[in-house]
Design a protein around this nucleic acid. Structure first.
Lengths: 231, 231
DNA sequence: CAAGCCTAAAAGAGATCACAAAGTAATAAA
DNA sequence: TTTATTACTTTGTGATCTCTTTTAGGCTTG
């Protein structure tokens, strides 16, 4: 039964059971605990989390609306497959949405937020040294999220998180083989651009950050298959 | 009990009750049947649609993940309020996402799709003449959706639809006072750009189309209140 | 040996029920 | 008259149960 093994993690799980289930499942997907194409069952997940099917169903519905879980015509559930075409589309979207978010967050950048993000960057070094890939992923996302969330009226964050969810299952397959140091260097670039109040440099570093984490992934796809579905 | 009056419409309602409820609620929101800030109850919606609360709960969860319905801390539901800041953010996002989608759909443009979209544009004239605002909204969205959906790997459509959902409740308040002819002219511009295979002109017309439908809305906000919450 | 069918097990869907949390209105006290 | 408290009502939540759909495996048949 430990076939999937939904990882535990510390954080806000909300007040209701449904929110807890959502939180656990969302985290599992975003850190890549489920491989693309994995079949899921409501009853199975309920059993694994020691809950009744009801809150699981609701959590699954939410994740399906975020395109993190696919509801098939026969009512079965699966983690979406990844293809080269979809992958490229998702990466392009990440760049579009996240540079948009960074531009619109830019006027709100302050020294305190720079320090906060620098602290997160330091935490990433720690997680990297400890080899905690789940934590690495979550801290990296917190780093980006802190920036985009500066804009008090932002509506883009849920969409960016949807992209992270869609890339999560695939990302994990390759993250082990990637030296993550490049990504962290881009973070330092981003912080420098923020300190210099240079929006162009910030977006440029951000785009590189996204590409760096993706090019190798794309290569991995091309290597394994001819660009078709990756299971 | 006809306080809200969820509009009926012809279209694919899916196979399950939950999908039906989602379809009805989604349509109600996107055509603006609920004013911003409207309080919703699961049991109330269930009664209005003659269903049990269960499928309504699932439909509401999905819509909450698309930011079409807001789940408050006290577990109550409401259609999100609109503010000037949020409105501008949503419009900017629409332009970013929809021009992105148009650019990436561009290589797939064919004469058959141009004809299909032209037919939809004609249908809009009919709906306009008939004063059917709900149909006008849905056909307009089908027009855009046909274009963006040309890219077979597109992942952006769900996000664009989320924006439409978020703008829906507010849009309706003003759509009656707008002469929609401008919007339709932009559609003709878009079709011309597509025939000329001019991606720059297409995106330019698209951006104007979005702005045209928004500037007046923004003015309406500014007129009614000082940019604060609009109920 | 392969293809189709039939039966049993598993899973999803939705209604219902019981419980808890939140809101509301009436009443009493200041 | 105003405020606070309390009882009542409404609502959300989650488990359970039943029904239907779907899948899987073994069987029969060509």
């Amino acid at each position: 039964m430990a076939a999937s093994a939904i990882p535990e993690f510390t954080g806000d799980h909300g007040t209701t059971t449904q929110e807890y289930a959502y939180s656990r499942l969302r985290n599992a997907i975003i850190v890549g605990a489920f491989a693309p194409g994995t079949a899921l069952t409501i009853r199975g997940l309920a059993q694994e989390l020691n809950l009744s099917p009801t809150p699981i169903r609701e959590a699954v519905r939410r994740l399906s609306s975020e395109n993190a879980i696919q509801v098939l015509g026969n009512r079965r559930l699966k983690v979406p497959d990844m293809s080269l075409g979809r992958f490229e589309e998702l990466v392009h979207l990440r760049i579009s949405l996240e540079t948009h978010a960074a531009e619109r967050a830019f006027p709100y950048i302050s020294t305190v937020i720079i320090e906060k993000m620098r602290a997160l960057d330091d935490q990433m070094d720690v997680a990297l040294a400890a080899g905690d890939l789940d934590a690495l992923t979550r801290i990296n996302q917190a780093f980006h999220k802190d920036l985009y969330g500066l804009n008090p009226h932002q509506a883009v964050m849920p969409m960016i998180e949807s992209l992270w969810l869609q890339l999560g299952p695939f990302q994990r397959q390759v993250i082990k083989t990637i030296k993550v140091s490049a990504m962290i260097d881009r973070h330092k670039e981003m912080l420098a651009a923020m300190e210099a109040r240079d929006v162009t440099a910030l977006c440029s570093a951000l785009e590189s950050d996204i590409r760096d984490g993706s090019i190798r992934l794309g290569r991995a796809i091309l290597r394994n298959q001819a660009g078709e579905t990756v299971a």
